[in-house]
């Protein structure tokens, strides 16, 4: 049961003083140091930094698979983690990930033994929605992402771009306020990378999700309006170029 509740606002996610330290004493590694971050609904923000800078650790903390050492995380105006209150304020972290966080990975990581529709419908089914409703939701999203003609196809038969769009549909299907995208354009050429960014922008706008895109892909960095640069576990917010992604 949730131990904390707060009135919802336009903020999708807010981090305050988030830190993560692995180990202790002389061998301690400070992966995150006092990270502050705020994302509004419908916003796509870049998280940029070199390898080992703490991007993945931040993503894992936000994804509720690694517990921060200190700080506070709010999602949709509700505190879900507060070190001052003892850590996670949500008992069921699986349900938190399932219902409030969407994940997009570098590779699509679709479930190979499910078809396109069921790869997306699986999440609402896991959340207890009836199969018919879950599949209807999945179809709606897949059609919005231009893969509606591949609904019953096994995912291994899709092109790389189609698989990535299915993965995006999966991240959106439970209408989470936050989507964590871990280098979603890394394996793609410029044209396809920009196409994926266009889709993310549109989906964020349409479904009101805040999307954090972890990347060091120079092709897409200029498209962000806001960027968090991370180095040695510290983040610095800066304005992006917000270059147009075209129609």
């Amino acid at each position: 049961m949730d131990k904390a509740a707060a009135p919802p606002d336009d903020t999708a996610i807010r981090l305050r003083g988030l830190s993560k330290t692995f180990g202790s004493g002389s061998t301690a590694v400070h992966a995150l140091r006092d990270v502050d971050m705020t994302l509004r609904r419908g916003e796509v923000v870049g998280l940029v930094g070199p390898s080992g800078s703490g991007k993945s650790t931040l993503l894992k903390c936000l994804g509720a698979v690694v517990e921060p050492t200190a700080g506070r995380i709010e999602m949709g105006g509700q505190a879900v983690f507060d070190s001052a209150s003892g850590g996670w304020l949500i008992d069921d972290l699986r349900a938190l990930r399932r219902d409030r966080i969407g994940f997009i990975f570098q590779a699509p990581y679709l479930i190979p033994f499910l078809d396109v529709t069921d790869n997306v419908a699986l999440l609402p089914m896991l959340a207890g929605h009836p199969d018919r409703e879950a599949r209807a939701r999945a179809r709606e999203l897949l059609e919005a992402l231009d893969v509606g003609h591949r609904l019953g196809v096994r995912v291994s038969l899709l092109s790389g771009g189609e698989q990535q769009r299915v993965a995006i549909a999966r991240s959106l299907v439970n209408r989470p306020p936050v989507i964590l995208a871990d280098e979603p354009t890394a394996p793609l050429d410029s044209e396809r990378a920009l196409a994926v960014m266009r889709i993310l922008e549109e989906m964020a706008r349409r479904y009101g999700a805040a999307i954090i895109v972890v990347t060091h892909d120079e092709k897409i960095i200029p498209t962000f309006r806001r960027i968090y640069r991370i180095r040695d576990g510290r983040t610095v917010e800066e304005a992006g170029e917000g270059r147009s992604l075209g129609p």
């Binding site: 990930r97 399932r98 990581y109 479930i111 999966r170």
Partner: peptide, 13 residues
């Protein structure tokens, strides 16, 4: 293993 990790991440019990 990767599929299982993904399943767990997206909320499978």
């Amino acid at each position: 293993q990767r599929e299982i990790a993904v399943l767990k991440l997206i909320g499978a019990r």
